[in-house]
Amino acid sequence: MTVKRAALIAIAVVLWACLPWLAPRYLIDLMVFAGIYTIAGLGVAFLLGQCGIVTLAQSVFYGIGAYSVAYFCAQKGLPSPVAVIAGVALSAVIATAVGWPVLRLSGYFLALATLALAIIGHVLFLEWDWLTGGTLGIGGIPHIDLFGLVLNSPQRYYLFVWPIAVALLWLHHNLVHSRNGLALRAMRDAPEAALVLAVDTHKLKVQMFVLSAMLGSLAGSLFAHYVTFVSVDSFAIDRAISFLLLAVLGGVYTVWGCVIGALFITIMPQWLSKLGDIHAFVFAAALIATVILLPEGFGGALQKWWRARATGRRTQS
């Protein structure tokens, strides 16, 4: 079983590494976006899956990460790691400051509060045009230079961004199965019991919110370095909705659900656009069908199928 599993993983890795030479360039371009969205969506998914928090504010942190790169790299000429770390740090500070009061709310109140944050963020991105370029945006952001190798093609960026995404997924997996992960699930499923066990639920929630914001910011920085152009249109409410969409669609209780969710929201519309004007409706219909047929998302459905298969085999032998 373990040998088989290792073989499966090896095949997957080889397939993944060969994809840039097998698939057309525009598909790799979409895969890059899927990788970036996986990282941002992971933040949304674990907040929802582990803490039961619906967040629509991820577009704000995604924007902070992107503008940080635009400002420090394109305007000030600083090296990329400085800009990315500055964005992540700034996002963490803002998430702490905002999360502390807001995370006292729960349920739909909290969802509305994060929506309000997304609106505030979008307006500030628009208004502070001395910093963000406003509607015009900021262009000429340098590509990432990896020891002399400039990541200026989708293929190279694909090979760069996915290892980061997978590493983050693995870290997340470890977090979920750690003591903190248990405390989180206790907080989600039985908040009173968690309180009795002296779990500081509010502090834990804020910590998770900050972590989620840092992921969003990192994704935004990667986005800016890839597209080399940022403008306020990329950080509006619909971006926040699409992050939530990919998290729920993928399934928030499995680690790799958001990979499937991200692939769905990036590749599906592009693929369907060949159908002409009706493509927007077909996408919506596909979304509706998925929700009705797989209420636990792709991840949940796959897991169920996998377990059913495993038990089936066990009863046979």
Binding site: P24, R25, Y26, D29, G137, V227, D233, S234
Partner: peptide, 16 residues
């Protein structure tokens, strides 16, 4: 009306 989608679509038209 999204710049990132515009870029992807342009990639697809140019290279695809």
């Amino acid at each position: 009306s999204k710049p990132d989608i515009a870029k992807s679509k342009a990639e697809a038209l140019i290279h695809g």
